[in-house]
Design a protein around this nucleic acid. Structure first.
Lengths: 229, 229
DNA sequence: GAAAGGCTTAAGACAAACCTTAAGAAAAAC
DNA sequence: GTTTTTCTTAAGGTTTGTCTTAAGCCTTTC
């Protein structure tokens, strides 16, 4: 698993950029320098970052636009770095979604502390609503709607995904077919319907393909299905 | 024990009301017709109902007000019946706490299915709240539908599970075979039937396998079964 | 203590629930 | 408008649960 924390440093001044990267390295995070707004966007598309340090005064595309772009597509924390130390700028930055604000010239230790602080805050709130359901070696990410089994991603259809999600929210609970059907399909269950069976069967197939040595879904005769513990 | 399921039918049109009552009777529930909003409220105060079928267009007091009243004082499930088949009405009804929505003209079978569905949902969520029945070292979890004896989980069939559940809800009560049969099977008991005996026997076997040093189910000669204290 | 009736248990026939597969229908993507 | 994916339906086969039967055991009654 990749636990490296990546930080994107968007700052056109070469010296300041290097200094920031040095501070970051010292804290055992991995910095990625970017010297313009457009360059920053390229990195952001290629790779997931845990934090962005962003100078407001930039060539190519100004910092505020970058910030808006970042906010459009996700929830990466952003620390603004600015020479304009006016209250106005600060308030405006925070309002547009920045997580913290550092003004130039800055104190090295303070930058380090603020980075840690923001990362800690995000980690906590992410854990709180990071919704990844796990059972045995199945990892179901509710946010990205992806399922990994035995390390590899498997492709599920919407129905299969919903069935698995439901089962995994209460791994010990037995779900009756009526319950499954009405939860997943949102329609009335009219008894003696083979549809759920087929989808469960297909789901089992895909899971088994990813890991043939394990059984995941258990049939409880006359009652329904549940995760096998 | 009174197991009758009572359904209040609030509908001013005489024919439709009668039709609904007929459908309900066919499913072995007990309908109570009411022809106005105020009449409905009187019944609701006198008696506990398991479900309300509610027409939105009513003399006396309109359906939405009735719905609000019902929601004020409890959690009886409500199915709305309406001639206005606009999405708006449907969404609004569901938002104000209705459990389902049927538009006129309705299909007889569909009404029947929806009634069953809503009752089933309510039953499940009600049961789930009751959590876990315990007797000696038997732990019966109503939500996950699992039974643990002496620390280990034992696998029961539906019949066995239902028998055990019934016995454990009133551990001191003696359940006659007729009572057991009619509760578990939902059919009339016609005497001289060995079926209950066999299932109790199998159930005892499974319990004894998990803990050979304990007896759980007691035979009361000529009367029935109960949990041994 | 023998007879009668109720209870237990085991085995096998049967039925119901379930699984898999494949093909056609429907929906989504291109 | 065509291709691809996904969903549903139906059929045949498998597994598991249920019910019946029947033999034997236990409790009560006379």
């Amino acid at each position: 698993m990749d636990e490296t924390i990546r930080i994107l440093v968007v700052e056109d001044d070469d010296d300041i950029n290097k200094l920031l990267c040095k501070i970051i390295k010292k804290s055992n995070y991995k910095p990625q320098p970017a010297y313009s707004g457009t360059e920053a966007l390229i990195y952001l598309e290629k790779q997931k970052y845990d934090l962005v340090l962003l100078d407001l005064m930039l060539p190519g595309m100004n910092g505020e636009k970058i910030l808006a772009k970042i906010r459009e597509q996700g929830t990466i924390p952003v620390i603004i770095i600015s020479a304009k130390n006016e209250k106005e700028t600060k308030i405006h930055s925070l309002r547009s979604g920045a997580d913290d604000f550092i003004s130039k010239p800055f104190d090295v230790d303070e930058v380090s502390a603020r980075i840690d602080s923001v990362l800690r805050r995000y980690k906590e709130s992410n854990i709180a609503h990071k919704k990844v359901l796990t059972h045995k070696d199945i990892h179901l990410d509710l946010e990205t709607k992806t399922v990994h089994v035995n390390g590899e991603e498997i492709a599920l259809t919407v129905r299969e995904y919903k069935i698995l999600t439901l089962l995994m929210t209460s791994p010990k609970k037995i779900f009756s077919k009526a319950n499954l059907f009405e939860s997943v399909w949102g329609e009335i269950y009219h008894g003696d319907d083979n549809t759920v069976n087929v989808h469960v069967s297909n789901l089992r197939n895909k899971l088994a393909k990813a890991n043939p040595n394990e059984e995941y879904i258990e049939t409880i005769w006359g009652m329904g299905y549940r995760m096998k513990s």
